[in-house]
Simulated scan of single mutants.
Amino acid sequence: AVDPTTDDIVGIRPTMVVLPDPKNPPCTERTMTDLKRIVDQCQSAQVAGAHEGVHPIVVVAETYIEFRKPGTLAATTLINDYDNLAVSRTMSKAFAFAGARVGYLAASEGIVDCLRIVRMPYHLSAVTQAVALAAFDHRKEQLSQVDHLREIREQTAAWLKEQTYKGQPLEVAPSQSNFLLFGGHFDDRGAIFDQMLQRGVLIRVVGPEGWLRVCMGTDEEMRRFREALVESMRAVENA
């Protein structure tokens, strides 16, 4: 069960509950209260088909943890309080290391053994591990652009809210990641995507109908995005 409610947990009786944090889409923040509520429920829920006393494991995937607002509590602060909780993180985003398919996990030894049974069969070579460890040794340099990307995200969100499509202001979903979900009422988001592509700007057609997604880039890339979006929306409006 992915991103369940407590009722889902009781009804489905899952072996494992996976919680993306922040939620994706649209990458809004999951409150610590909600997280504790779900983990607490899993501590007493029964796994379907298992022996009595076997409870679901909760895996919190903090994929965009580096992009969250400074001072935000992370799920890792709960590891010592729960024996059914694991927290996974990736080097794909802030470390720009997606091709290596490498991440890291915080959990008790027993939980780690359980997760090994269901992990995806990605080969983690010695070279990949060495590069990942080297990246951690230079974490400050590796993450030097994250603060700036966070600023760009907030500036872009503010700018998007000032734009209109067919007379209505654009909506922007709150985000704690390196991208923004925006629009809300695009009646032909595919046409806007095509217009953007013709102008050399690639965004994503993803999420609920009426919405588009843009990842944060360099200052120059975001300038081109803003220019292309305005031109694309006007072109679709006048078609």
Rank of each mutant, 00 (worst) to 15 (best):
H123V: 09
D40Y: 01
N238Y: 14
D147I: 03
T77F: 10
G183S: 06
R101M: 12
D3R: 08
A48C: 02
V60F: 01
M91Y: 08
D7A: 15
C215F: 02
S88P: 00
A96P: 02
E151N: 06
V17M: 14
E52K: 13
I192Q: 01
E227A: 07
P56Q: 09
N24H: 07
D7W: 13
H148E: 15
A74G: 11
E209C: 06
D21H: 05
T33P: 03
A135N: 05
R234A: 13
L85H: 06
F67R: 00
Y165D: 00
G207A: 11
G110F: 15
P25Q: 09
E209F: 07
R139T: 15
K23F: 07
A106Y: 05
A157I: 15
N238I: 15
T77D: 12
A74R: 12
C114K: 14
T72L: 07
M216C: 05
H148P: 13
Y122E: 01
L197G: 09
T90K: 12
N80C: 14
G71M: 02
G99F: 03
G49L: 02
P4Q: 13
D40A: 06
V112T: 12
S125D: 11
D137K: 11
T6P: 01
P174E: 11
D137I: 05
T15P: 02
Q195E: 14
V17H: 13
F186W: 03
T156I: 06
V58K: 11
I57Y: 05
A75D: 12
E141H: 06
A130Q: 08
G200M: 10
P169Q: 10
T63C: 04
K161W: 14
A86M: 10
M120L: 15
Y122V: 02
H123P: 07
K69W: 11
P169V: 04
D137N: 10
V118T: 14
V127M: 03
R224K: 09
R234D: 09
E221T: 07
R204P: 04
A157L: 14
E231L: 04
D3C: 04
I12D: 04
P174M: 08
S144K: 08
G184C: 04
L149N: 10
G71R: 07
I192F: 08
V39W: 00
A75Y: 05
V230Q: 05
V59N: 03
G49I: 03
P56H: 05
A94Y: 02
L105T: 10
I79K: 04
L133G: 13
T33E: 10
R89G: 03
E171A: 03
S144W: 05
D219M: 10
S177M: 03
E29I: 06
R89W: 04
G110A: 15
E209G: 09
V54A: 09
T31I: 15
E231S: 04
F225E: 00
L115S: 02
G71H: 08
I38S: 00
V2Q: 15
S144V: 08
